[in-house]
Lab assay of single mutants.
Amino acid sequence: MTYRVRIENADGEVVTIEISADELREKGLTLEELLPPNARIVEVEEVEP
């Protein structure tokens, strides 16, 4: 499974990243732990691999 994640950074700019569930598991991280300081998740969407 892959996630498309929209993130708002500290400057108010919204960027989109895609990350797979396998990648998260391998790194032992959650989506929140990948965020840079002062950023927030705006939207998470599951996409087909």
Rank of each mutant, 00 (worst) to 15 (best):
P37A: 10
P37R: 08
V42Q: 05
R4Y: 09
L29F: 07
E32Q: 12
R40N: 04
E46S: 10
K27P: 01
R4E: 05
I7C: 05
A39V: 13
E46Q: 10
L29K: 10
R40Q: 06
V44D: 01
P36F: 04
A10Q: 10
E48Y: 15
A39G: 07
V47N: 04
P37S: 07
A39M: 08
E45N: 08
A39F: 14
A21K: 07
L24P: 00
S20I: 03
D22G: 08
E32L: 12
G28C: 06
D22K: 13
K27D: 02
R4A: 03
L34N: 02
V5L: 05
V5F: 03
E43K: 10
I7W: 14
V47I: 14
I7A: 03
R25Y: 09
V42H: 03
I19E: 00
G12I: 00
N9V: 11
E13F: 11
E43M: 13
G12L: 02
V15T: 09
E32N: 09
V42D: 01
P37T: 07
A21Y: 09
R6W: 14
L34A: 12
V47A: 05
V14E: 08
A10M: 11
N38T: 05
A10N: 07
Y3I: 15
E18W: 15
Y3L: 12
M1E: 06
E8S: 06
E46F: 14
D22C: 12
R6T: 15
L34S: 06
Y3Q: 08
N38V: 02
D22M: 11
L34K: 03
D11P: 03
R40M: 06
E23R: 05
A10W: 10
I17C: 14
S20F: 05
N9G: 10
L24G: 01
L35I: 14
L34D: 01
T2Y: 15
E18M: 14
D11M: 10
E46A: 12
I19M: 03
L24Q: 01
E13I: 13
T30M: 06
L24W: 04
D22I: 09
A21T: 06
V14T: 09
T2R: 15
E43R: 09
E23V: 10
L29R: 06
E46P: 06
E48P: 14
E32K: 10
A21F: 11
I17H: 02
L35A: 05
G12E: 01
R40H: 07
I7P: 00
R25G: 04
N9Y: 15
E48L: 14
E33R: 04
L31C: 07
V44M: 06
E26A: 13
E32S: 10
A21E: 09
E46G: 06
D11N: 12
D11H: 11
P49L: 13
V15H: 09
E8C: 13
V15Q: 10
Y3C: 10
E23Y: 14
P37L: 09
V15E: 09
L35S: 01
E48H: 15
R25S: 07
N9A: 08
T2V: 15
E26W: 09
G28Q: 06
I7T: 02
G12A: 02
P49G: 13
A21V: 10
M1F: 09
M1A: 08
E18Y: 15
V44L: 08
M1R: 13
I41T: 02
N38P: 04
L31A: 01
I19H: 01
E46H: 08
K27M: 10
V42Y: 04
L35Y: 03
I17S: 00
T2G: 10
D11T: 09
I7S: 01
V15G: 03
A39P: 02
E23D: 08
V44H: 02
A21D: 06
N9H: 11
A39I: 10
V5H: 00
V5K: 00
R4K: 09
E13G: 09
A21C: 07
T30W: 03
V47Q: 05
I17Y: 07
I19D: 00
V15R: 08
A10G: 09
E45T: 13
E8R: 10
E48C: 12
V44G: 01
I19S: 00
S20R: 09
V42K: 04
E18R: 05
L29M: 12
D11Q: 13
R6Y: 10
D22P: 02
K27C: 09
L31F: 07
V42F: 05
G12C: 04
E48G: 14
I17M: 09
L29N: 04
P36L: 04
E33V: 04
N38M: 08
I7Y: 15
D11G: 06
E32D: 08
G28R: 06
L35T: 03
E18L: 14
D22H: 11
E23T: 09
K27Y: 06
V47P: 03
R4H: 09
A21R: 07
T30A: 06
I19L: 03
P37I: 08
E26C: 13
I19K: 00
D22N: 11
T2Q: 10
I17G: 00
L34Y: 14
R4L: 14
V14N: 05
L24V: 04
V5D: 00
P36S: 05
V15P: 00
E48K: 13
I41Q: 01
E13N: 12
V15M: 12
V15L: 11
R40A: 04
R4P: 05
V44S: 02
E23M: 13
A21N: 05
I41C: 04
P49E: 11
M1Q: 08
N38S: 06
E43F: 14
E46W: 14
E32A: 11
N9S: 10
G28I: 02
G28V: 02
L24T: 01
L24S: 01
I7L: 07
E48M: 15
A39L: 05
E46L: 15
V47C: 07
D11F: 12
I17T: 01
I41A: 02
E18S: 08
V47R: 05
S20H: 08
E45R: 10
I7Q: 00
V42G: 01
A39E: 02
T16Q: 06
A10P: 10
S20V: 03
Y3D: 08
N9T: 15
L35Q: 01
E33C: 06
E13K: 11
E8G: 02
N9E: 04
M1D: 05
E13C: 14
L31D: 00
S20D: 07
L35M: 07
E13T: 15
Y3S: 03
R40P: 01
D11Y: 11
E45W: 12
V47L: 12
E48V: 14
T30C: 08
N38C: 10
L24M: 12
V42M: 11
E26L: 13
R25M: 11
R25P: 01
G12T: 01
A10R: 06
P37G: 05
P36N: 03
A21W: 13
D11S: 09
T30K: 10
N38I: 02
S20Q: 07
L29T: 06
V14P: 03
E26T: 13
E23A: 08
E33K: 07
E45S: 09
L35N: 01
K27W: 09
T2S: 12
V5R: 00
